[in-house]
Every structure is written in C-alpha cells, then in structure tokens.
C-alpha cells in the first residue's frame, strides 16, 4: 500500500531527483538543486530575522535602547554590496571577528594545547601489562612525531637520521587517516540509508 500523503510523495520525488545525479547530470536534478538552494536561503533569512527579534528587538522593547546600535551595525553589514560604501561593512565584521577570535582562542589554548600536552606528558609509558605499554608508547610516539612533522622552520629536522622522526609521524598519521576514511564510508552510507528507509517505509510502505 503506497502512501496517500502528498507531502510524502513530494519528499519521495525530491529524494529520487537529488539521487539521480549519482548516475548522470540531468534536468530533474537541476530542478532539485535550485529548489534546495532557494529553500535553504529562505530558511536562513527566516531564522536570521527570528534571531534578531528574540535577542535584539525584545531587548529594545524592554527599554535597552543601546541595542539600537547593534541594529545599525547589522544594517552596515549590507554595505558589502555597495561599491562606494563597502568600507562600512568592516565595522560590524570587525566586531564579529574580534568576538569570535577572542572567545575561541582563550579556550583553545587550554583544550587543544595545555590539556593535550599534559595528557601526553602525564601518561606513564610503562604499565597496564604488555599491551598497555605498547599502546602507551604508540600514542606517545604518534603525538610527538606528528608535531615534528609539522615543524617546517627547521629544514634539518626533515633530513638524515633525524628525518625519521617526522617520517614516523607521517606514517602514523596515514594510518590514522585510513581509519578516518573507513569511518567516512560508514558515515555517508549511514546518512543515505535514512533515505532508503524513508522510501521503503513511509512512501512505498513495504516494510
């Protein structure tokens, strides 16, 4: 028994249309592609305006008149499209960049550097049986040699006997990237399977 819900039929059409590109470029796919871009941009605007209402407009309504300044800055973003007044766009973008950079580097230095270095330094290389020792050594060697691989300011680090250190780093990274690739295959199939389940269960109602 096939679904009688028109929204399911439209969704099934767009699923098949978007998939069709895997076989060959065609006009149905192009239709789906343009639809997707239009809808995505429309949704983005709707959510943008809702965000402005919830976090900006309500503040003004509550009497925080200073928020008018944010609206002025927000409108200045659109000077980007004007040849003469382009420079005005730099004020809000400078604010966003300053905020984004400040908010992320203050914590990145802790999460990505201090904690990672401390973890590497504090893990005992020997202990936890033979397997535990082997694992700890591989992890330590992997972390240290991978960092060495990215030091490009000292050319001699990549030459002669010393050159084996970054080389080991590269080998271990390639092994890790292989794992990443294997997982990527699972990830992509995992996502497409959702559409197959939709087509068979919700549209054709075969399962």
């Amino acid at each position: 028994m096939v679904s009688m819900d028109p929204s399911i039929w439209i969704a099934a059409f767009f699923t098949i249309a978007a998939t069709s590109y895997a076989f060959r470029d065609n006009v149905v796919f192009k239709f789906a592609e343009y639809t997707f871009i239009g809808v995505a941009a429309g949704h983005q605007i709707v959510m943008g305006i809702k965000n402005i209402r919830d976090y900006g407009w309500t503040k003004i309504m509550e009497g925080q008149i200073i928020y008018v300044l944010v609206f002025v800055l927000g409108i200045m973003l659109y000077a980007r499209f004007h040849r003469e007044y382009y420079w005005m766009y730099r004020f809000p973008i400078a604010f966003l960049v300053g905020n984004g950079v400040g908010i992320s580097i203050r914590a990145a230095i802790h999460s990505d550097f201090i904690v990672q270095v401390a973890q590497t330094a504090s893990t005992p290389l020997i202990g936890g049986g033979a397997m535990g020792t082997i694992n700890a050594i591989i992890t330590f060697v992997g972390a240290v040699t991978a960092i060495f691989h990215f030091i490009f300011t000292q050319e001699n680090l990549h030459e002669g006997t010393l050159g084996y250190i970054p080389k080991i780093g590269r080998w271990l990274m390639l092994l890790a990237f292989g794992a990443s690739f294997g997982n990527t295959i699972m990830s992509r199939f995992g996502m497409y399977q959702g559409r197959i389940i939709f087509l068979l269960r919700d549209w054709l109602q075969l399962v």
Partner: peptide
Amino acid sequence: TLSMMTTSIKPYYDSGQLLGIMDGVK
C-alpha cells in the same frame, strides 16, 4: 558527531574533556 568526525575529536575523549562519544550511526 558524524563518524567521519570522530577521529578528530577523539583526543578530547582520551584526555577526559569528553566523557563519551556517540560515533555517528554506529
């Protein structure tokens, strides 16, 4: 995260910054 991102956030899990990871569809 999606499985393809798991490897890149794995160091956070090893260092206790993430207590667990939901590795995509798996």
